[in-house]
Computed example of a mutant assay.
Amino acid sequence: SLIQPHSGKTPEIRKRLHTFLRQGVLVRDPSPSIYLLQIQTGDSKSLGFVGSVQTGRLSTGEIKAHEDVENNRVETFKEYLKITQLNAEPVVLCHPPNKELEDICYQFTNSLPFAEFKRKEIDYKLWRIDHPILIDRINKALKSIRSLYIADGHHRCFSSLSYSKEDKTKDQFLAILLPHDQLQIDHFCRMFSTLNEMRIDHFVAKLSNNFKVKRLSSYKAPQSILEFSMYIGGSWFWLTSKRSDTTTPTLNRIPTNIIYEDIAKPLLSIQNLQKDKRIAYRHYENPSQQIKEDVDKSEYVLGIQHYPIPFKDIIATVEDSDLLPPKSTHFRPKPLHGMLIFDFLTQ
């Protein structure tokens, strides 16, 4: 693999790149290029441009983060960049729909792709754009967009920014830029391994201070940002927050922040959501089954599923100069790692 900074084999990655190039597994672009990538799952299609983005746009606020980062992880990714000199996992940036970019996409998707393949029931198509006039047209359209938002890859973004401050020649990172209406937002379930020495009935009773609590006969998925599904002690519970869905600032009605402010912090004494080992974040494809399984086998004592956070609330939180709790969003689609690689040594 070319993209495992935690594997302990980072020094070998550069050697592996040269092996792949020699074997023809990877091929260098003969000239500077931007790629158009289409990812299709069933009837759902996403189209985005893949290329290098200036780290300075993070410093100026043109690229906006919605989650905080953990310094240790930023340092780990920065060391990976310094040793390998490679970006092999694109950051996902999103933006409002743009007519000029849509026209360019239409122009290319009506032509044969540079490459196409299928992996795990997902279809990928790539178009290479290497004509200077077209590249300039795309860059001008992207520069006209006031704000770009990090959908996936906060730590990769900020590790690149940190590295660029040490070496000003390394001032770019690999990214895919997608219209936000082509992204799907899912959730990470909050899984807890503690009740803070409370009995289950006492814990459930204390929840009624901030929630309307109802025991369910079977699982029911949350239908709004103030609704939560909780599994504990062999039973499902339906929690409805007593907060208003119009409360301001926006962070006060973000589901993951409600779980933190009204459950994790006051009842379970969890203060640091990034470092406390008593909370885990799991993206379950089948939460009704997987939450129950993990709690029933005593891996956790309770699990909570929240409603996916609407994109407008993410943007509003960022514009309020607030940040969401960690692992608040799970965005799709995600480009394949290592499919396109940005090599610092050839820029």
Results as ranks from 00 to 15, higher is better:
189 C>Q: 12
190 R>L: 07
190 R>Q: 11
190 R>C: 05
191 M>Q: 02
192 F>P: 00
193 S>R: 10
194 T>C: 07
194 T>V: 10
194 T>F: 04
195 L>N: 02
195 L>Y: 06
195 L>T: 11
197 E>P: 00
198 M>T: 11
201 D>Y: 11
201 D>R: 06
201 D>M: 03
201 D>A: 06
204 V>P: 08
205 A>R: 14
206 K>W: 04
208 S>L: 01
209 N>C: 07
209 N>V: 12
210 N>R: 11
210 N>E: 14
211 F>N: 11
212 K>T: 14
212 K>G: 09
212 K>W: 02
213 V>F: 10
213 V>D: 09
214 K>T: 15
214 K>C: 07
214 K>W: 03
216 L>H: 04
217 S>P: 00
220 K>P: 01
220 K>S: 14
221 A>F: 04
221 A>D: 06
221 A>M: 10
221 A>H: 10
222 P>R: 10
223 Q>L: 14
224 S>G: 12
224 S>N: 15
225 I>M: 10
225 I>G: 00
226 L>P: 01
226 L>I: 12
226 L>S: 06
228 F>D: 05
228 F>P: 02
229 S>L: 07
229 S>R: 03
230 M>Y: 02
231 Y>G: 03
232 I>S: 00
232 I>H: 00
233 G>V: 01
233 G>R: 00
233 G>D: 02
235 S>V: 02
235 S>L: 03
235 S>I: 01
235 S>T: 08
236 W>F: 11
238 W>G: 06
238 W>N: 13
239 L>D: 00
239 L>N: 04
239 L>G: 03
239 L>Q: 01
240 T>R: 12
240 T>Y: 00
240 T>K: 13
241 S>A: 09
243 R>G: 06
244 S>E: 13
245 D>F: 04
245 D>C: 05
245 D>W: 01
245 D>S: 11
246 T>F: 06
247 T>I: 15
248 T>Y: 07
249 P>D: 04
250 T>R: 05
252 N>I: 01
252 N>Q: 13
252 N>V: 03
253 R>Y: 08
253 R>M: 10
255 P>F: 02
255 P>M: 07
255 P>V: 12
255 P>R: 09
256 T>F: 01
257 N>R: 14
258 I>H: 00
259 I>G: 04
259 I>Y: 04
259 I>H: 02
260 Y>F: 15
260 Y>D: 14
260 Y>N: 15
262 D>V: 04
262 D>F: 08
262 D>T: 07
264 A>L: 15
264 A>V: 08
264 A>G: 09
265 K>H: 09
265 K>R: 14
265 K>P: 06
265 K>E: 14
266 P>R: 03
267 L>Q: 06
267 L>N: 06
268 L>A: 11
268 L>R: 03
268 L>C: 13
